[in-house]
Design a protein around this nucleic acid. Structure first.
Length: 531
RNA sequence: GGCCCGUUCGUCUAUCGGUAGGACAGCGGCCUCUCAAGCCGUAAAGGCGGGUUCGAUUCCCGCACGGGUCACCA
């Protein structure tokens, strides 16, 4: 008994994996070009990409632009650029084409009607001529009659204006003169069961489901039809999408069944949602500005400033860090490794390690990931990334110098622009000075000793910062002062602030002559300050 | 409200019935001219109630709570 149960369980566990191994994996990321692609979409794309790459499969981009009202110019370019920045490259898509194109649903418009017809022929769909007003009115009625569960379904469709309630002549007449939609005819009461890779078996009863519109008044399909038809025609093997789609999956399963495609229906995997930091609802566009953090990969400029958003790229994040962070939102490798390159993610990824519950977006965590990525780069690598912002700040350091600065700063930055913010004194004499602290620490009696130190620094010749360090420390000891009385002064003179990298390395980099001048200058200024 | 999905430290998570582990954030320490980084340490969790079992975080049922969804949007 016990062993039987055990074996049964083992078989259940290994079956999906075997299927994946021996099947050609074809997955698609299918965004709607209605604006900037937010971070949840990027994660969906990532998981699709990882599964495809892990099994030598194909990763497809399909643009779902069936809603002409919501079409936003530039959105498709944004999506493509954003995913490219993240290192997610498509094998088939609108840019590069492929054997199953076109890859924009608007360009596939002519392909959908025949399947809607097929459904009508078989009695699984029907024409509906209801106007928006009559629908709204009916919905109000149903709300009272059925206690909130108001839908266009088996219970109500016979009181509506559609090809089920009209004579053939009336229908033919209306087809020519009126705007119409095609609705899927749901069975009155039937359990629709499917297996979700992440959630296991899920069941819906058709009595709870409505007669979804599959073809709109303008001749365009809705998501439901377009999605099923395209996934079939494009031979998609796995549908990996957000959990918000779970409740309409029964409609999709029925569509596959009615179209005779159930045997080749893709496997479903519904990803847990990315939630707002407070956990109340899924993360949305506006949460970024509200909480002062990006939720988009790239900045998005909209004519309406309210709809313009800053991106992770512009905020100074590294795409590899973003990807690493996103991979861990709802997935884990089952080991204690946390830092993963894209190749390592591909190796380690497995749908069975995707969690079921929603994950809150944690800004602190992505900052930590980014910091890890920055401090593992060489000075040269960092320099390359910040060179343009250094230039636009008006500074023109040599490549070597910039790289050396980046190297010194690299352990204390979270995002790339921190180098510009924290490194001002490496590039110009015009850097902010914390004079308040200086005043607190300044003791006029030490003036001569410090001027003497400046003198020594200016004259010192060495290539070794520890050599300088010894000289300075010896001088301080000999003058009878403590390190704590002198070094903070020096730091403010040279860097303007009490924090920063090793003082002696900093001085060596800036140049000892310049440092001497900075010390003298600060002391001159301090004699002008009120005591 | 109906239906569906979920529920382990504040947060992200490990644990596939047998001492609840890691990471972020927090706190403390070491290091140090400072700030970081790093290292060490500390505090912190199985929603509730029933069952099944020698044993339940893990399996089952109920409840509670949270989320999703109920458009000619995807």
């Amino acid at each position: 008994m016990l062993t039987l149960h055990y074996i049964e369980k083992k078989i259940q566990l290994t079956l999906p994996q075997i299927q994946i191994m021996h099947q050609t994996i074809r997955v698609r990321f299918a965004p709607s070009p209605t604006g900037a692609l937010h971070i949840g979409g990027v994660r969906t794309a990532l998981f699709n990409y990882l599964l495809a790459k892990k099994h030598n499969g194909t990763f497809i981009l399909r643009i779902e632009d069936t809603d002409q009202n919501r079409f936003v110019p530039g959105a498709e370019d944004y999506i493509i650029e954003a995913l490219a920045w993240c290192g997610l490259h498509f094998d088939e898509g609108p840019m590069q084409g492929g054997p199953y194109g076109p890859y924009r649903q608007s360009e596939r418009k002519h392909m959908y009607a025949q399947f809607a017809d097929q459904l009508i022929q078989k009695g699984h769909a029907y024409y509906a001529f209801d106007t928006a007003e009559s629908l709204e009115q009916k919905r109000e009625e149903w709300k009272l009659k059925f206690d909130h569960s108001a839908t266009y379904n088996a219970l109500t469709r016979m009181e509506m204006k559609n090809s089920l309630t009209m004579s053939e002549a009336e229908v033919n007449e209306a087809l020519l003169t009126e705007s119409y939609t095609v609705r899927l005819k749901m069975p009155a009461s039937e359990d629709v069961r499917f297996t979700d890779i992440i959630r296991g078996e899920v069941t819906f009863n058709t009595s709870e489901l409505d007669d979804k519109i599959i073809l709109k008044g303008d001749g365009m399909p809705t998501y439901h039809l377009a999605n099923v038809v395209d996934d079939y025609l494009m031979k998609i093997s796995h549908v990996i999408r957000g959990e918000e789609w779970l409740s309409s999956t029964a409609h999709h399963v029925l569509l596959y069944r009615f179209l005779g495609w159930e045997q080749v229906m893709p496997q479903f995997a519904h990803l847990p949602l990315i939630l707002k930091p407070d956990g109340k609802g899924k993360l949305s566009k506006r949460d970024g500005v509200k909480l002062g953090m990006p939720v988009f990969p790239l900045s998005w400029e909209d004519p309406n400033p309210e709809d313009s958003f800053i991106g992770f790229r512009e905020a100074g994040f590294d795409p590899d860090a973003l990807i690493n962070f996103l991979a861990f939102l709802g997935w884990n490798p089952g080991t204690e490794q946390e830092i993963f390159s894209m190749d390592e993610l591909i190796q380690a990824f497995d749908l069975s390690h995707v969690s079921k519950s929603g994950a809150r977006f944690d800004f602190d965590k992505i900052k930590w990931f980014n910091q890890q990525y920055l401090k593992n780069q060489t000075g040269e690598e960092l320099a390359e990334k910040v060179a343009s912002s250094i230039k636009s700040a008006g500074w023109n350091p040599s490549e070597n110098y910039l790289a050396a600065v980046c190297f010194l700063l690299r352990d204390r930055i979270i995002v790339y622009p921190d180098i510009v913010r924290d490194g001002v004194y490496f590039f110009t004499e015009d850097f902010p000075k914390d004079t308040d602290t200086f005043k607190k620490k300044w003791n006029p009696e030490h003036k001569d000793a410090i001027l003497g130190l400046a003198d020594l620094i200016g004259k010192w010749e060495t290539n070794d910062s520890t050599d300088l360090e010894h000289a300075v420390k010896d001088y301080i000891a000999n003058s009878g002062l403590g390190l704590g009385q002198v070094l903070p002064m020096l730091r403010i003179a040279i860097a303007g602030t009490l924090k920063g990298p090793d003082l002696f390395q900093t001085m060596m980099l800036i140049g000892l002559q310049k440092c001497k001048a900075r010390i003298q200058k600060l002391i001159d200024e301090s004699s002008l300050l009120p005591a």
